[in-house]
Simulated scan of single mutants.
Amino acid sequence: MSEIILPPSLTAIRDDFLALEQRDRLQLLLEFSQELPALPPRYAEHPDLLERVEECQAPVFIFPEVDSDGIFHLHATAPAEAPTTRGFASILAQGLDGLTAQQVLDVPDDFPYMIGLTEAVSPLRIRGMLGILGRIKRAVRAHLG
Score class of each variant (00 low, 15 high):
Glu45Ala: 07
Leu20Gln: 04
Pro59Val: 15
Leu6Gln: 11
Val60Trp: 09
Arg52Ala: 10
Ile126Thr: 06
Ile115Ser: 04
Ile91Leu: 12
Phe88Ser: 00
Ala58Gly: 10
Pro40Lys: 08
Phe111Glu: 03
Leu49Phe: 10
Thr11Ser: 11
Gly87His: 00
Ala139Ser: 12
Pro64Ala: 08
Val104Ile: 08
Ala80Arg: 09
Lys137Phe: 08
Leu6Ser: 12
Pro79Ser: 08
Gln34Asp: 14
Met129Tyr: 00
Pro83Thr: 01
Pro123Phe: 04
Tyr113Ser: 11
Glu81Phe: 11
Leu36His: 07
Leu124Gly: 08
Thr118Cys: 02
His75Val: 03
Leu36Thr: 08
Asp67Ala: 13
Pro8Phe: 15
Phe88Lys: 00
Leu49Pro: 01
Asp106Cys: 05
Glu55Cys: 08
Phe111Met: 01
Arg14Tyr: 03
Leu28Arg: 04
Thr118Ser: 08
His143Ile: 12
Ser9Val: 06
His73Gly: 07
Asp97Arg: 04
Leu10Pro: 05
Leu99Asn: 07
Glu45Asn: 06
Asp97Gly: 11
Glu45Pro: 06
Glu51Phe: 09
Leu18Tyr: 13
His143Asp: 11
Met129Cys: 04
Phe17Asn: 05
Pro108Lys: 07
Ala101Glu: 01
Ser2Arg: 14
Leu18Gly: 08
Arg42Lys: 14
Thr100Gln: 03
Glu35Ser: 14
Asp67Met: 10
Gln27Leu: 09
Glu55Ser: 07
Lys137Gly: 07
Val60Met: 10
Ala80Met: 12
Ala76Val: 07
Tyr113Val: 03
Gly116Val: 07
Ala44Lys: 12
Arg135Trp: 00
Arg135Ile: 00
Ala38Gly: 10
Leu18Phe: 11
Ala82Met: 02
Leu39Asn: 07
His46Pro: 11
Arg127Val: 01
Val140Tyr: 06
Glu119His: 06
Pro64Cys: 09
Ala78Glu: 03
Val60Glu: 09
Glu35Lys: 15
Phe72Cys: 03
Gln57Phe: 05
Ile62Lys: 02
Glu65Ser: 12
Gly131Asp: 02
Leu96Pro: 13
Leu105Lys: 12
His75Gln: 04
Ile4Val: 14
Leu28Phe: 04
Tyr43Glu: 04
Ile115Leu: 03
Gly70Tyr: 13
Asp15Gly: 12
Gln102Tyr: 03
Arg141Tyr: 01
Pro79Gln: 06
Asp16Arg: 15
Ile13Glu: 06
Pro41His: 14
Leu29Glu: 02
Arg86Thr: 02
Pro41Asp: 14
Pro41Cys: 13
Asp69Trp: 03
Leu29Trp: 05
Pro7Leu: 11
Ser9Ala: 12
Ile71Gly: 04
Gln27Thr: 10
His143Thr: 14
Ile115His: 00
Leu92Ile: 09
Leu74Phe: 10
Pro123Arg: 09
Ala12Pro: 01
Pro8Tyr: 11
Gly116Glu: 03
Pro112Ile: 15
Ala12Phe: 12
Phe63Tyr: 15
Ile62Asp: 01
Leu74Glu: 01
Tyr113Glu: 10
Leu50Thr: 13
Val66His: 09
Asp97Ala: 13
Arg23Met: 02
Phe72Thr: 07
Met1Arg: 10
Thr11His: 13
